[in-house]
Amino acid sequence: MRRLSALVGLLSLLCAPFTADAHALLDHANPRVGSTVAPAPTELLLWFTQKLEPAFSTVEVRDANGARVDDGRVQVDSSDATLLHVPLKPLGGGSYEVRWRVLSVDTHTTEGRFRFNVGK
């Protein structure tokens, strides 16, 4: 019975109010993951599930030849710390790979990758 009491006590502790931040995972993107868009976007937008630390968040966008097509800047939105803005160079038709790595405010890093296509 004492073991059950201990488990219930631990659960009660977990249910108490707390401040927490979890892993930042990609919620959605524009252009959408795996989509084909036209005309070519001038900016990639990435929404995450948690607030981000801008200094340690990186995004690379490369074309089918491996050349970077982002301009190297990544900005956290001034009014929404879960949104990253990634300005893009002029894109032609083809497939593009996005690789992101972000740090949430609780110091968890997460990473991911996906593709989108630009129609001609």
């Binding site: 977990l14 707390f18 927490a20 979890a22 740090l103 609780d106 110091t107 968890h108 890093t109």
Partner: peptide, 25 residues
């Protein structure tokens, strides 16, 4: 997920917890 609920207390390793730096995944 205790490491997400309590990232600075019981959600960290007892020894060698990284402090203020990124921890992979």
């Amino acid at each position: 997920y205790l490491d997400d609920i309590f990232p600075t207390t019981i959600g960290r390793p007892l020894i060698g917890a990284q402090n203020g730096t990124a921890k992979q995944g």
